[in-house]
Design a binder for these strands. Structure first.
Lengths: 234, 234
DNA sequence: TCACGGCAGAGTGTCGACAGTTTGTGAAAA
DNA sequence: TTTTCACAAACTGTCGACACTCTGCCGTGA
């Protein structure tokens, strides 16, 4: 039933850098992925209790793979497993959102810096193509399209930093961020601001200006947080 | 038998920020901690295969908690669990060491920046006391003492950033880093360089110079990597 | 009426067992 | 002698069951 969701090309993007990491290949990871998508897309709300026995029934398995899936979810901070108590979907409170954005800003600053040092001209040109997609989405007012192309752009940047660890950690943070990022972009006017920042970022890449790129990248992320903060929606 | 190791006050420091995170309270986490210490202290070498059945025997448990402990170890990148194959202690190759130091440098830059913005004068004064311990260790040439006081200093900084997520992620990185960090400090002359950097860092804190503190903090970490790189020991 | 204590239901943590897969060994063939 | 194939041992992933713990409800006593 959820295979459709998980198989979806877009949600797939959220897991690419995480896939290699997982231990148990199939059952546990499948359940993990399924639940993770439901959490980040907001179908499983914060505080919702997840029952391993019930999940086992739903997935036609025993509780063992379910438990392992829950551990994977905990590793991504999507659920909290108190000892001897029911696991529940982790809360999304503003202070914690800020913490995550701060980390993400710092790491994307690093990505941009490394990218300038290590990416080839062709690779940087590839980023410009993502940028073109974003421009088009913005022109059409296609918030959803913008959102996912933005994910693609971000993933491409991370990959060009040529630091696999960094890429993995950002992917992990990204999963967490998707729980509230759509809030940020759907705010009025936000999309155009974001686009302008992207523009400056791509230009800094083309100019091979590492310091500027890092600064723009950081502020790009932080601006997303401030938008959420001001919206008062969390 | 290993309780002595794990109970040790110093190794304890490595896990403080990780403790709350764990799902299974006792058995799995105990096994995890035990194995983690053995890996970071170099008693379990990279590539060494860990056999869940054998571990279960050694800890007088079934394989279930052992499996969960292995998942926790995988989360800290201390073991790799290929599907349907034996888990093994993750390798420590120079390129990956570099990746981790890059991330750590960036995040400690963030720590220093946030610390300047958020710590009270008393708290910053507390850091100066750690610094005094380091000076004393350096004077005595006590590399081991310097190492652990340095960990304490770093933990204190992370805590003063008042960003719990950041603290947790640094703790996770730290666990990984301890696998090769002792290499760095035991290099001749390295200790004094490190001390001089600390001195500058503490002064930047006292002066509330966020930009300088962040820069010094980053270079402090990166210098550690360059020392390892030049030593050619990895 | 309200507080306290005990009891039943639900759920987690752990266990031992089983099936399927991988690895290593040894015999057979080239 | 070297290579290939097949078999056996070892190990992983999964399962169903059991004991202990927690939670919520109900009855008892004040």
């Amino acid at each position: 039933m959820l295979a459709a969701d998980v198989g979806d090309l877009r949600t797939e993007m959220l897991f690419t850098a995480l896939r290699g990491t997982d231990g148990s290949s199939s059952l546990a990871f499948t359940i993990f992925q399924e639940l993770a998508v439901n959490i980040v897309e907001g179908r499983l709300l914060p505080g919702h209790e997840v029952n391993s026995a019930e999940l086992a029934r739903r997935f036609n398995t025993s509780r063992t793979p379910v438990r392992e899936a829950l551990l994977l979810l905990e590793r991504e901070d999507l659920v909290i497993i108190p000892p001897r108590r029911r696991p529940y979907v982790s809360p999304v409170a503003l202070p914690q959102v800020r913490e995550i954005y701060e980390i993400r800003a710092s790491l994307y600053g690093l990505v941009s810096q490394l990218l300038v040092e290590r990416a080839t001209d062709e690779e940087i040109h590839g980023l410009a193509e993502w940028q073109a997609l974003l421009v088009e989405d913005a022109r059409l007012g296609d918030v959803d399209g913008y959102f996912w192309h933005n994910v693609g752009f971000r993933n491409a940047e991370a990959s060009l930093s040529k630091n696999g660890e960094l890429q993995r950690r950002l992917s992990s943070l990204g999963l967490q961020m998707h729980r509230f990022r759509h809030l940020s972009l759907s705010l009025p006017g936000r999309l155009l601001h974001s686009l302008a920042d992207h523009e400056r970022l791509v230009r800094a890449y083309a100019d091979r200006d590492a310091a500027l790129a890092a600064a723009v990248s950081r502020s790009l992320v932080l601006r997303g947080y401030h938008a959420i903060e001001r919206s008062g929606r969390v």
